[in-house]
Design a binder for these strands. Sequence first.
RNA 1: CGGGGCGUAGCGCAGCCUGGUAGCGCGCCUGCUUCGGGAGCAGGAGGUCGGAGGUUCAAAUCCUCUCGCCCCGACCA
Length: 570
Amino acid sequence: MRFSRGFFPTLKEAPAEAEVVSHKLMVRSGMIRRLAAGVYTLLPLGLRVQRKVEQILREELNRSGAQEVFLPTLNPAELWRKTGRWEIYGKELIRLKDRHEREFCLGPTHEEVITDLVAREVRSYRDLPLNLYQIQTKFRDEIRPRFGVMRGREFTMKDGYSFDRDETGAEQSYEEMVQAYTRIFRRCGLKFSAVEADSGAIGGSFSHEFMVMADTGEEAITVCNSCGYAANVEKSPVSLKLPENEGGELEKVHTPGAHSIEEVSEFFSLPPYRMVKTLLYIADGEPVAAMIPGHRELNETKLKNTLDAVDIELADAETVEQLTNSEVGFAGPVGLLGVQIVADTSIENCGGLVVGANQTDYHYTGAREGCDFTVSKFADLTVAQEGDACPGCEAGLSIKRGIEVGHVFKLGCKYSESLDATYQDESGETHTIVMGCYGIGVGRTVAAAIEQNHDEDGIIWPTPIAPYHVDIIPVRVDDETMEICDGLYNSLESAGLDVALDDRDERPGVKFKDADLIGFPYKAVVGPRGLKEGKIELKSRKTGETLLVAINEAASFLNNLVTEEMESIG
RNA sequence: CGGGGCGUAGCGCAGCCUGGUAGCGCGCCUGCUUCGGGAGCAGGAGGUCGGAGGUUCAAAUCCUCUCGCCCCGACCA
């Protein structure tokens, strides 16, 4: 592509709304433009990169035996009602009605549609296993779209679904997808790790997230440097042990003005872990009290799973006051009526605890679980912290940040059951199909690649997903130079490289700056300095190294460089 | 949805407090000179100051409502 004909609107300054590097650089380099909150137009450069990622996805998924389909965006409500998600998915689901008042939604994911398809078409064990995927626009009315293409309301996602006869088969499909994903992200030039994850609203029993390590990531991950264990903090198990403690008798103490754990802890001159936080939640409409040691944070995902609830939220002040008959800050398990109490396992049989007394300005000391109050369920309820013991090897965990670019789930029969996706085995017996589902955020992968590969001048594309491999830069736009550039352009194109030619009548500095911003892996500079010796300068974006190569050798030289890089990274 | 902030030329911003001529930098157009890391000079185009109401002789500026956007939290690829 020649710059003079191209649509590459680069910007010197990033729009004020862009917060993270990838967003800024995508806007500045002319890849994307915003239409509305979380809704973006892909310009030619952005589209090229996205297409390259999609191509890698197709190659690797096809290689693993999956087949591409294309499912409708417009989904009838009826299907979603069958699985119960019309209600469960909530406000995130974009709903609409047609002229006959029939209800539809725009697909935020496609378990319903694909399972319905398979339920209709698959009869026999001979049809299994089956693995289908699509690359398509998804719609989710995110509460808070942000970071450009990283969390949009309309975005491109690759979603795939596997269908197997049984658990064993499903596990094998899952493993194949993990392998495919590993190849995909490696080819995209990303440093990533597959971490254990919570299976969330989609449901299911087992899942991994593919996280690209980046300080701007929205996810916190626990990582063990010793055995390699990695998990989303939401999922990362914590087993707390509180120090032994005699306890003493239950006693109500006047604690004026002490609301927070710090204040109460200071009041009694006792360490925070002897305090117990009692947090009141509304879980699917029912009040629940969750107790955790005072020095810890509650993990809402774990709480939700423990309660087997669809939706939980922290009770508001009014509700808390109603339930505890006191101001906010004095909730405790002793004498708390009509509320289910769950607690972190560390509290089981524990004595000498300081808890709220459900009376303004009063706390109990010397409370003992099992004696002064009873808990209906114990579970791991806290958020993992830096230094916690690794569940694999007991070494200290560290906390890192990551961007979730992919997610693999073992779904089980959740959808195949509600949509009646079954098959007959060799003996004619009917079984429910066992499913898995696998997602990759395509735009997010592109953004993550930028987060990991950039410098102060702009993007440094990994060669396999660069919009163009080489940018030819004539220093002077005169006939002699342009003739050489055109020659190089043609031979590179016929060698199969993606090549840009900056034939604009601009000063060289402008071209260099744009080339660095856009992030072409190589610049081929054709100018008087090199031409004196009959040579072209090849400059690597990544290393900044410059090589002088004879004009007639430049094409094959570049071709070798690029090919080598594509292969080594693949 | 709760908390914080912002809407003035394509982009980045000033002006608003204390009402009275709409400004700066970049970009864009024309010309000349330049030409190896975002050139210089000269000339020029471009703005219903997010929208609606109100106060006032007079509103970008004050008041009310509204729409949009961004940041912090719960959701997720």
